[in-house]
Amino acid sequence: MTDPDPPFASKDVQSTLMRQTLVDRELIRPHTERPVVRLLSWLHVVTIGGRSIMDRGRDAVVPVVDELRAAFGEHRMLIATGAGIRARHVMGVALDLGLPTGVLASLAATEAEQNGHIVAALLAEDGVSYLPHTSVGHQLAGHLAASPAVVSNGFPPYEMFEFPSPVGKIPQHRTDTGAFLIADAYGAARVIYVKDVDGVYTCDPATAAEGEAELIPRVGAAELLAMDLDTLPIDRMVLELMATAKHQKEIQIVNGLTAGHVTRALRGEHVGTIIYTD
């Protein structure tokens, strides 16, 4: 498309997208259709759940951290931490005060960050540091050349720019989603979610009658959304984003309370539930 208004043409920088609104899909398509490169194809993104692991304290966290440390020779990792019970508390206070979703997102993200500082401290002797978002976004390659792993806040840097939610005011971009987005942007080898259940069940194993809840070992993201289960061990937004992701066509949920599962998942073994793009 050329400028219909010649006096201003001199103020343009020549490019294939010049003077486009960047809204018309037909006009953008020819210029942006190359398959996206994987910036860090060797990267493993491991998410440590807030409520499911961190809040359980020493008994749950130390074995998971030990397994990650043992795998440092084999894999380079971005460890993303979740928020947990303190985030629930602060969101409760903020909701009561009438504050908006963007403020809740910012407050809750702070708690995920604090959990990250704790995990980084536990791994400091192995050369692991906590990195803020700006470093994860711009210097991850350098840090992981110097160190086997880094820890960061699982929440993405949406904060006051969080989307309003379809129902209610709980922010939608939380740890599961943040870890997925950064893994896809870097073209990571895999994303593993360390939780306190073996994976996705047909109903909530915590409340269902004995034997009623069945583990689903492998399921499509869209299929799982369509099942409309009451409780999922992973945020729904991740399942929605899997439909358009450029690289991350599979995610894995493993039980951090079962010894060896994190290690096996890092090696590519099928433990827990694998969710794939369908």
Binding site: H133, G137, P156, P157, E159, H173, A185, T244
Partner: peptide, 16 residues
């Protein structure tokens, strides 16, 4: 510009 940085959603088609 929102501060989404490397955590921006990807479009259905392309990379904008």
């Amino acid at each position: 510009m929102p501060p989404y940085d490397m955590w921006q959603h990807v479009p259905t088609e392309g990379v904008i």
